[in-house]
Amino acid sequence: MQKWGMVIDLDRCAGCQTCTVACRTENNVPFCGDGNAWKGRAIFWNKVITVRIESHGSQREGEPSASPGTNNHAGPRLRFLPMPCMHCERPPCVLVCPVRATTKSVDGIVMQVPSRCIGCRLCQASCPYSRRYFNWQEVDYPGTLKEAVNPDVSIRTLGVIEKCTLCVHRLQKAREQARDENREIREDEYVPACVEACPAKARTFGDLNNPDHAVAKLARSPRAFRLLEELGTFPQVSYLHESTWKSESRKSVGAEDEEEIDG
């Protein structure tokens, strides 16, 4: 059985939010308008969050110590972290759901069945990555805007939780096609919208159990890390550290990563 997972290369990520829009259009995620957005109720299955690193201990190689107003090491620095659902191997949200509206699928997707959800928001409270969103308002696509709705994905109503499903509707189609042709799913056959859309090719997706898949190799790379690993959630989404530039003369120095990014 597969274990679908994703690796996001933070060095490649430009913080452009293409994944966010790709996800929103693919999964019919509604916009909520200014009022609710200002209350923090905007829904992003996949959000690029900004991490502000207040003080930076070690300087990067080849760069001077902080001199006022010079480079980004003097003051705080910003780093961008794209956050889909982590699809934990031991998801806390699944444990707390009283109605089994959210389950861990056999191939590793943390599923949310909105028609089953009673809106108690326990899962939202239990998710250490805040990757679950509550529908605070009825979806309202005025006029012709609703024509752009993706027919493959249902629209959630007021009062239920929704979250990233790794574009499970694409898996359903790909799986059916593969089974019809009596073969396994190919690596590029099923990728979520965010992976397909990423212009900087920062995201890699595939079966973590299949050693031939690029994602399985990358997830074991020395650059790989997972968010909040200490909680024992075992996320199936891993990140690759940023690396640093080495000048020509120092290239022989082995690549090692000096910085940690924690959410």
Binding site: T103, D107, V113, D152, T165, L171, Q172
Partner: peptide
């Protein structure tokens, strides 16, 4: 047959 939620729900 499989009856995993992810197989049918979307």
């Amino acid at each position: 047959a499989e009856y995993d939620c992810s197989r049918c729900h979307r």
